[in-house]
Amino acid sequence: MKQLLHFNKTIKKIHLWLGVSCGLVASISGLTGSLYVWQPEITAALNPKLLTVAHMDTISEGTLLRTASYLMEMHKDSLTRINLPYREQQTVSLIYENGETHYHHPRTATFLGAKSFSIQFFEDLLHIHRTLAIPKIGKYLMGGSTIIFLLLILGTGIYIWWKAYGDNLKKGF
């Protein structure tokens, strides 16, 4: 009987401390994720000169591909990636090896500007959401806390609930 009481106390402590630590990680992930959901609308509203183009619906896919090809040819030695229009971004963005991002008109390829503070803010927010802004091990902490939550916290929670309400399931529900 004494061993069972000790086991129950241990299970409750495990449940408490894993719940607190995983809850903290889940809270950070939840807050950053809920802010990031609004990223396209907020950045488009704050950066209309960088991200929106008049008469975007009249730009053909061929024109867009010719513009992208021209920009790639012009900057090929220093580019790491080129992004075509997507979601709320209607311009072509070039990401350089030095980390800079420049935005260009999808029809004329004219330079519209560099990455703004609000765009950088949302990129940093996504990084925190995915890795807690901890290089190399952050993604493992996020994944590990998910697995711990799924297996250990739910398992110990079910055990604690069963011990309390196993004889009276109606009261437990």
Rank of each mutant, 00 (worst) to 15 (best):
L65P: 04
L64K: 02
K49R: 13
I59F: 05
P40T: 08
L71W: 08
T52K: 13
N47F: 06
A54K: 12
L50S: 06
M74C: 11
L64D: 08
E41N: 10
Q39N: 06
M56G: 06
L50G: 03
T52Q: 14
T67E: 09
R66Y: 12
T58Y: 08
T63A: 13
T58L: 00
T58I: 07
T52G: 10
L46M: 02
R66T: 15
L71Q: 07
L71M: 06
K49D: 15
V53D: 06
M74G: 08
R66N: 12
G62R: 01
T58W: 01
I42C: 15
L65A: 06
D57C: 05
M56P: 14
S69I: 02
L46A: 05
L46D: 03
L46I: 11
T43M: 14
G62K: 06
Y70G: 12
T52N: 13
A44W: 12
L46K: 06
L50K: 05
M74E: 11
M74W: 05
S60E: 00
A54V: 15
H55C: 11
P48Q: 07
Y70M: 12
Y70H: 11
I59P: 02
M56W: 00
Q39V: 03
I42T: 13
P48F: 06
N47P: 06
P40G: 00
M74P: 10
D57M: 10
M72D: 14
S69V: 01
L50C: 02
A68F: 03
E73H: 02
A68Q: 08
R66G: 11
L46Q: 00
T52V: 05
A54I: 13
A54F: 04
D57A: 00
L50F: 03
T52A: 11
P48N: 07
G62P: 04
R66L: 07
M56F: 03
T58P: 02
K49V: 15
A44G: 14
K49E: 14
A45M: 02
G62E: 02
P48W: 13
A45D: 00
S69A: 03
P48A: 03
T52L: 08
H55S: 07
A44K: 14
A44I: 14
I59L: 06
T52I: 04
L71S: 08
R66H: 14
L50P: 09
A45H: 11
A45L: 05
T63H: 05
M56A: 01
A68S: 01
S69R: 01
M56T: 13
A45F: 09
V53G: 07
Y70C: 12
A45Y: 04
H55A: 08
E41G: 12
P40N: 01
T63Y: 01
E73I: 10
L65V: 12
R66V: 11
K49C: 15
A68L: 08
T52E: 14
A54D: 14
A44T: 13
A54N: 11
L64P: 08
T63C: 09
E73M: 08
T67L: 03
M72Q: 15
D57T: 01
A68Y: 06
M56H: 08
M74F: 03
V53W: 04
V53H: 03
M74Y: 09
E73N: 05
E41A: 14
H55L: 03
L71N: 01
P48V: 07
I42E: 13
L46T: 09
M56V: 14
L64G: 00
G62L: 10
